[in-house]
């Protein structure tokens, strides 16, 4: 590319423009043409950039979505198809047998109820504890608050198995063995630090002026929090709730260590399809596919709030 010469007509005041080698530069009409060609060139450039972005987006989607699609297709395969060497992506013969096997297995429905129950309790606990903690940390900005938020992160650095076994013993000691509440408390230990950090960033984004205005209008600090701040960060609360729910919904290790007959959750039941004597791959994928439906629905339901929450956290200062 080269910078085109300035024309006489524009008195040499026009900004230099980028043009191709064959563009005439001496008349008004040719100047218009040149600008038209430039616009077309820019438009074409934009289109190709957009096309490239779409290709990258599609590639990323395939990369993320393929494992789930493979799982979904496998759930419709016949037993011999599921273990084909080399593996096939699409079923050679479609069947619902894996779904009937998986859903007909004793304990599956109960495990689903347990998973829902545990995830709801854990999410509620996380929010109830994280929202005031994060609000206090961001509004009062004390040294102890800063130490607390850093300490909360430290708990995330400990491997879950290291706290799983003592936690299971503690729950047994207080008579909560094999109950959803015990598992929910354990799951809250995972989601709470992340929830506090997330909520802190959302509260940071809310201008203090809003609260002060509410106070001027007669609100107490708690009233301002409840009536003004919470509605503003509701998107952030939705994001935090989703993270807390997912952390509990998919958690395996604590469920393995702490549940037995009454409160076993579905991830453990899914894992039970792999035994020392073989892997029932078809039934395992069928149950995993069914198990992912509530989370997909929940995410779709809260999609707008999540997007709002994401952008809220990004606006600061």
């Amino acid at each position: 590319m080269r910078v085109a010469e300035r024309t006489k007509n524009d008195g040499g005041k026009a900004a230099p423009v980028v043009a191709g080698p064959s563009v005439p530069t001496t008349t008004r009409s040719s100047g218009r043409k040149r600008r038209g060609v430039n616009r077309e060139g820019l438009e074409a450039g934009r289109r190709s950039t957009r096309a490239l972005l779409w290709v990258l987006l599609a590639a990323a989607m395939v990369l993320y979505g393929f494992p789930f699609l493979y799982l979904l297709f496998t759930s419709f395969k016949t037993p011999i198809d599921t273990i084909a060497v080399p593996p096939t992506i699409l079923p050679r013969e479609w069947t619902l047998e894996n779904y009937t096997n998986a859903l007909g297995r004793s304990g599956v429905l109960a495990s689903f109820i347990n998973s829902v129950q545990t995830a709801i309790i854990s999410t509620v606990l996380s929010l109830v504890l994280a929202v005031p903690a994060a609000y206090g940390i961001t509004r009062y900005k004390t040294l102890s608050g800063r130490i607390f938020i850093m300490a909360a992160l430290v708990t995330r650095m400990v491997p879950p198995v290291a706290i799983g076994i003592p936690l299971a013993s503690m729950m047994a000691a207080v008579g909560l063995s094999d109950t959803p509440i015990a598992l929910s408390i354990a799951h809250t230990t995972i989601s709470l630090p992340l929830s506090i950090w997330l909520m802190s960033s959302f509260f940071e984004a809310v201008p203090k002026d809003l609260e002060e205005a509410a106070t001027v209008d007669g609100c107490s600090r708690l009233g301002a929090l409840w009536r003004v701040v919470i509605p503003v960060v509701s998107g952030g609360i939705a994001v935090t709730a989703i993270f807390a729910f997912l952390a509990s919904w998919n958690e395996f290790l604590f469920a393995l260590l702490m549940t037995a007959i009454r409160s076993q959750t579905t991830p453990v039941v899914i894992a039970n399809f792999q035994t020392q004597f073989g892997l029932d791959w078809g039934s395992m994928t069928a149950l995993a596919a069914v198990y992912s439906i509530p989370v997909i629905l929940l995410t779709l339901l809260l999609q707008r709030k999540i997007v709002a929450g994401m952008t809220l956290g990004a606006v600061k200062g």
Binding site: S111, I121, T179, P180, I181, A260, I261, R262
Partner: peptide
Amino acid sequence: CTAVALAATGCGAGGPSVT
């Protein structure tokens, strides 16, 4: 309230007794 109620019962859906 539902979650608290469920938690308060201390029950899972799998069965009646722990041990």
